[in-house]
């Protein structure tokens, strides 16, 4: 029987290949937007036990904010704590229970601190001393 489709093989050059889970390095032309940082929402921080981790990358796919990263040349899992909201989905999907949830107040760093509230100029004037 004759097939309707031909089989094609496309050679994708290395520099044009789509990375795993579609995470691309964003150029950030205006720098980090401090108003958009969601690290302050986090109550429990994900902490990974690299010895237990089997690199199945379920957590990378599960993270709604793409804050689970492949670091160390793609050999390890890391977290972008500026944006991680602590939802716990990575802990939930991990098949080997390698990701723990630790209270954020147990750590000294990791959360971008907002010294002032983000206000429109005419509202800012009402807060001024």
């Amino acid at each position: 029987m004759k097939t309707r489709f031909k089989k094609y093989t496309v050679e994708i050059p290395e520099e044009m290949a789509i990375p795993f889970a579609g995470i691309v390095e964003s150029p950030k032309p205006n720098g980090e937007q401090p108003m958009m940082l969601t690290g302050g929402w986090r109550i429990y921080r994900p902490v990974i036990d690299s010895e237990k981790c089997v690199m199945c990358k379920s957590c990378v796919l599960a993270c709604p904010d793409a804050t689970v990263l492949l670091v160390d040349g793609g050999n390890k899992i890391g977290f972008n704590l500026d944006y991680c909201k602590g939802c716990g989905l990575c802990t939930w999907v991990c098949p080997v229970n390698a990701i723990d949830r630790v209270p954020e107040l147990d750590f000294e760093d990791g959360v971008p601190f907002q010294d002032a509230l983000f206000l429109l100029p005419h509202v800012e004037a009402l807060y001024a001393d």
């Binding site: 959360v111 601190f113 907002q114 807060y127």
Partner: peptide, 12 residues
């Protein structure tokens, strides 16, 4: 309490 780590709750 964790809110305090991310934002200045005493602002103003």
């Amino acid at each position: 309490a964790t809110i305090m780590k991310g934002i200045n709750v005493c602002y103003g």
